[in-house]
Design a protein around this nucleic acid. Sequence first.
DNA 1: TCCCATGTTCAACGTTTTTTGAACTATTGA
DNA 2: TCAATAGTTCAAAAAACGTTGAACATGGGA
Lengths: 123, 123
Amino acid sequence: MSRTPLHPTREQIELPMVLDCLSDPIRLAIVYQLAQQERVSSELCCGDFSGLAGKSNLAYHFAKLRECGLMLTRVAGTNRFMRLRREDLDVRFPGLLDAVLSSAAKDADRLQLLPECETVEVD
Amino acid sequence: MSRTPLHPTREQIELPMVLDCLSDPIRLAIVYQLAQQERVSSELCCGDFSGLAGKSNLAYHFAKLRECGLMLTRVAGTNRFMRLRREDLDVRFPGLLDAVLSSAAKDADRLQLLPECETVEVD
DNA sequence: TCCCATGTTCAACGTTTTTTGAACTATTGA
DNA sequence: TCAATAGTTCAAAAAACGTTGAACATGGGA
């Protein structure tokens, strides 16, 4: 089991690969969920996505997301903690990630994304 | 030969399909070229893209671009004139097309896109 | 009218991608 | 030490995708 998964450098991140990665509904949902987690500056581990697909299928999508430079995986004990490569992406492709995320948010129902968790508000 | 190719309505345009369409280098190049043409508000016909692929392969990519709502085709005699669905896309996914296009422009070399034709400026 | 130019459609082919379950590795806690 | 937990890897099957050339449709000009 690779101790530290490979990640491309910032400069190696390619636009077509990023777009292709984001075009898959499962991966888009993963990225969307990571982006929400960003707000509370913590990370998520694989198990947090179990609603989206089976374990091995998720591992496949995680690998793609890492390989194309969309997210970073940090190994900690038996867990893998993941986060968006927000800064790298914003430098490389300014405005792209935000545009995708806000477009996804608009279509959250259609894309079957988790509702945005308004961390504090209760009705 | 279908007289008027089918195009989705604005509301039918889906984010994953759009991203998938843009993730193919040939289609990205087509969209990029259409965007440049936009500046002089004229349209392009199929033949204008002959540098990118063979005729039937281009027809395949044009069909995808139409089906996912990225471009519009107008039949005029023996020609098909095409243009970006700029307004529909901007309403549906604000900022997305511009972010993709400027990211593509940044990587024009890597993506083997035609250099932007600075219509006026000369150095 | 006949031919040419412009594009589309179709079928075939090979490649890539996605999905699945089973086997496996590594770490933690009892 | 042993079992449980968290993820990855592998191989096989299914599905989706991109490319090609040949055949086709349509409209315009000689």
